[in-house]
Write a protein that binds this DNA or RNA. Structure first.
Length: 227
DNA sequence: TGATGATCATCT
DNA sequence: AGATGATCATCA
C-alpha cells in the first residue's frame, strides 16, 4: 500500500488509475497524515481541500493549472462528494465561462469539451455530518462521455453560449441546460467582469462558471458501478 | 430537502 | 481580474 504521495506525475493512464485505486478505501485523515498535511475540521474556509489533497496523492502538478490536471494523459481530475449510498451531493464545476473573449468559439474547440473529454472521477463519501478527516475515498471512475452524453453537452453548451452572445447573460438562470448549466462563480458578490448587454453594449456582470448537474454525474457514476 | 445563488482560499 | 480547487447557506 502506498504510504507516501508520489513525487512525479503518472507516466500512463494505467499508472494514474493504479494510484487512484491505491488510495481507495482510505480516509482523508489517513492521507493527510501520511502527507504531513493537517486536515481541516470543516470545509467552510477550505472548500478545495479534498481536490488538492487528491491531486497531491495522484501526482498532479501542485497549484492551479489552466488545462487538464494530467495534460500528458489528456485527463481531468474531479472529486465528487457522495453519501454512503452513492448519491451525488453537489454539482461539479467544469470551467470558467468566458462572457466576452470566447463567445464566437465553437463547441469542438471549447474549454468545456476539452475538460470533459476524459475525466477521472474520484468519489469521496462527504456527508456533512462526517468530519473531513473521517471521509473515505471511493473507487475511481475513468469516464469518457458516450454519444448521448456528448450530444447533450454540446446542445447545452451551444444554447447557453448563444444566449450569452445575444446579450442575455442576465436572463440565464441555473435552470437552463439539461446536463450543463451556468451559475455565479466568484470570490464574492463584488467581483465583476465584462459581458454583452441586451442592447449589444458592454455591461458589467458577476463572473459565471459551467457546472454539471447532479443527475448527470449521478447517472455516469451509476453506469460505472453498474447500479 | 434539494437546487440556486453566494462564497472561501489560493495562485497567476 | 481570471482561473484553479469546490462547498456553503438560504429559500422555495
Amino acid at each position: 500500500m502506498t504510504r507516501i504521495p508520489p513525487n512525479s506525475p503518472p507516466i500512463s493512464v494505467q499508472a494514474l488509475f493504479d494510484r487512484a485505486e491505491g488510495i481507495a478505501g482510505r480516509t482523508l485523515g489517513e492521507l493527510g497524515a501520511d502527507a504531513n498535511i493537517v486536515v481541516p475540521e470543516h470545509f467552510k474556509q477550505h472548500k478545495g481541500f479534498t481536490g488538492q489533497l487528491l491531486e497531491l496523492w495522484l501526482g498532479a502538478t501542485a497549484g492551479s493549472k489552466q488545462q487538464q490536471d494530467f495534460p500528458d494523459l489528456g485527463i481531468e481530475l474531479k472529486t465528487i462528494p457522495i453519501d454512503h449510498q452513492g448519491k451525488v451531493l453537489e454539482t461539479t464545476y467544469v470551467c470558467y465561462v468566458h462572457l466576452l473573449s470566447h463567445i464566437a468559439e465553437q463547441w469542438h474547440t471549447s474549454a468545456v469539451r476539452n475538460k470533459l473529454g476524459q475525466v477521472l472521477f474520484i468519489p469521496v463519501i462527504g456527508e456533512r455530518a462526517i468530519p473531513p478527516a473521517q471521509r473515505t475515498v471511493g473507487m475511481p471512475i475513468l469516464w469518457q462521455p458516450n454519444d448521448q452524453e456528448k450530444a447533450i453537452l454540446q446542445q447545452d453548451w451551444e444554447e447557453l453560449m448563444e444566449q450569452i452572445s445575444l446579450g442575455q447573460i442576465e436572463s440565464i438562470t441555473s435552470k437552463l441546460g439539461e446536463a450543463l448549466h451556468i451559475r455565479p462563480k466568484a470570490a464574492n458578490g463584488e467581483a465583476l467582469t465584462d459581458a454583452i448587454g441586451a442592447s449589444g453594449q458592454i455591461i458589467q456582470t458577476r463572473p459565471r462558471g459551467f457546472y454539471l448537474r447532479k443527475n448527470f454525474t449521478q447517472s455516469l457514476l451509476n453506469r460505472a458501478f453498474d447500479l
